[in-house]
Design a protein around this nucleic acid. Sequence first.
DNA 1: TATTGTTATACTCTATAACTATA
DNA 2: TATAGTTATAGAGTATAACAATA
Lengths: 154, 154
Amino acid sequence: MAGTKVDKISDTTLRGFSGYRLKRAFNVVQADLSHVLKPFGLRMITYSALTIVADNPGMRQSELAKSLDMERPNLVGIIDQLQRKKWIRRDPAPTDRRAHALVLTELGQDLVARATEAVAEHDRKVFAGLTGDELKNLHQALQKIESMTTGRLS
Amino acid sequence: MAGTKVDKISDTTLRGFSGYRLKRAFNVVQADLSHVLKPFGLRMITYSALTIVADNPGMRQSELAKSLDMERPNLVGIIDQLQRKKWIRRDPAPTDRRAHALVLTELGQDLVARATEAVAEHDRKVFAGLTGDELKNLHQALQKIESMTTGRLS
DNA sequence: TATTGTTATACTCTATAACTATA
DNA sequence: TATAGTTATAGAGTATAACAATA
């Protein structure tokens, strides 16, 4: 018992903002997803990277960085790790000797396949409480928000 | 021109996950909100802290940390900053000599009032594309997701 | 014994400047 | 000149262990 205080903390002002509700919901999803990925030795960023490379074999690091919405320098260490674990290869790019062509190894492809199954199950579980209509509506709403110039609004 | 590559990068696998869509939408909101708060000398975390203290004068640091979903040690530096800027005070807690009673100064109250106006306008702008029904639906969906045990799912 | 605030520490994430080798 | 990948660096954000004062 922490004293006589009832400790009913209110966040009514913040709750008035849809953005705050969006953040709270996302935090729950993110926390759970981290637990799902940990057994695979993956984090959200490494899983996303592997999946995008799987979908776009031969892509360059700068393209991956842009796709992950991160700065090129910060991607270097991540690719280093994935390469050390033999999940990804930096092949020479055929048309540009400065660039690398990113491709998954067989080990990487296998890992992504298994992790994707787990992520898919996680996703189904998190959104299981929503009806088909609610989910469709949610996607539409999120799409509208995302299309808002992506970054700084008017 | 970056060579002959067309660079159509696909994220179809990730797009199949509602959690990924949630993340993308949240990123847009977060990035824009940061721009809104910067002129006030505030970040998301400092604005949230000030607002919750404004709603709960006399609350303790541990309560604020829990409310912000962060660890107690990480809050110390943040309160230090807010105190240095004369926006918050650490008064002695009346019933427990270990604890602090957090309260906003007049300067802090004024700042929160002005910032909250800007945040409210930002929130209206971001979600302006949604109809009343869509927004109501969105809130309901986000609430359902957030209620999923908050953390690790079953 | 447990809790409040704190210090120290470490690891992840993010952002910028500047270098090299190519284009 | 500009771009791809890299290095170095610094600032946020986050998590854990341990301590002094107090409950």
